[in-house]
Design a protein around this nucleic acid. Structure first.
Lengths: 239, 239
DNA sequence: TCCCGCCTTTTGGTCGGACCAATTTTCGGA
DNA sequence: TCCGAAAATTGGTCCGACCAAAAGGCGGGA
């Protein structure tokens, strides 16, 4: 096993995660108001600037609601939460998603990427095909190298599937994939370790074939099938 | 016309939006590197603390790429952009979406809310129905009041449709709707002005009927139809 | 007893200065 | 011309102090 660079967390991050944990664990309930920045400063012996920066970031993540000169309260992150909130939530759990989260994610993938596949199969230019072929050529090149760089392959698979969304003509789909990025990367890494690199690349090529053939329904069903295979294989592994 | 609370932007926000504007307007091109934080501090007479915080936030929004001790460059926000980037882009344009953006949005809506509708129609508890009925009752109450508060109705419609996503059991769909929130609110306001308040509430009830009846395909088709009606009505208006 | 206006306290927001560690640039010597 | 050490520059972090606005407390008048 390789030991990567050891990241030294900053004071800000430490305080941020501490607070995040208290919110997610329920110690701090939705609607609870936080102590003032000064009070936190005294408790934690951290400067107010750092406290302030951490609180501001937690606000952006959807965990807090800060009103100038009134204070910060724990936000109802089910109401205001975004993908960023979810990413923080998953990271808190060591990067592991619950069974239900995984299912939800795959379902969202079918909804979004499935729509993109359908549209692209129905309507595409030679340029679109060339664009995707180019990305596939890169995965082939990577596949030829030994040993296999799983991270790089996952990155390429991400770009390829985002490419499908880009070329579908929908301006929102690629943005949504970017939003999901950490989760999607995790997914591809696991898929590579479950089914092997070749199988994943082969499947990617299959989508292009179906797009080229204009088989919108076939491409959609293929996506559904591979999602189901992934989920059942995951269940298999747990047993 | 009602004048709401006047929001006083903080220095950080002012600086942030200024930079955002320069990036989106093309004055700062993708790949351009920004002056150092100290230089910006001198130019703007804003403290480095605030400059730093603003840059960090712009990085999170996908507009900048910051490398420690090397500086900040304008990111390719088409590659790294998220919904937040898009929201900023639309806000810059006075809240107006292009024709293509509107189409893309409605398509994304069909993909996401359509999936939620299907799942909920196929499988739901009495509790789910009661939850949605409760939200509908609130819209009815609002509808009875005169004059009509369009903003409040749009808010309720948003909550109702998010409720469908929440109750579909998918943990991602509500988060995606939150992400889209500014755009969705704009959509409902326009829909209310186009078709009237009653028609929108009536349509909302129709979805619940179809869910109750377990008619997944019917609910999905209903959504598709109303989306098409909205788009063609919009075209009509432009002419 | 209640309400209005003044004054103190508390609040988030901002500031400039300082230090750190790593990178980039500079420049003198081989 | 090239190399390597020193200097300058960079983003990241931290501190303690100050600001203006909001909240809360207080006292006097009705």
């Amino acid at each position: 096993m390789q030991i990567g660079v050891i990241e030294v967390p900053t004071l800000k991050e430490l305080f941020e995660h501490k607070l995040e944990e208290q919110i997610l664990s329920g110690k701090l309930k939705v609607g609870d108001s936080l102590p003032s920045e000064r009070q936190l400063q005294e408790e934690t012996r951290i400067s107010k600037t750092v406290i302030h920066a951490a609180l501001a970031e937690l606000e952006q993540k959807g965990f807090l609601e800060i009103t100038p000169r009134r204070g910060a309260v724990v936000a109802n992150y089910e109401e205001t939460g975004t993908m960023e909130t979810l990413n923080a939530l998953i990271r808190m759990n060591g990067g592991n998603m619950t069974r239900k989260q995984t299912r939800s994610f795959m379902e969202a993938r079918i909804a979004i990427e499935g729509s993109a596949l359908r549209r692209l199969a129905e309507k595409h230019s030679d340029d679109d095909i060339a664009y995707l072929e180019d990305l596939l050529a890169k995965t082939d090149a990577l596949l030829a190298e030994k040993p296999l760089d799983a991270d790089a392959l996952a990155e390429l698979l991400f770009r390829y599937h985002r490419g499908i969304c880009v070329r579908s003509g929908n301006e929102f789909f690629p943005l949504l994939l970017n939003e999901f990025r950490p989760i999607i990367m995790e997914f591809w890494l696991r898929s590579i370790s479950l089914f092997g690199a070749e199988a994943n690349v082969h499947l990617a090529k299959r989508y292009l074939d179906l797009i080229r053939a204009g088989d919108a329904e076939g491409a959609f069903r293929r996506l559904q099938r591979s999602v189901n295979e992934y989920l059942s294989c995951l269940d298999e592994q747990i047993k």
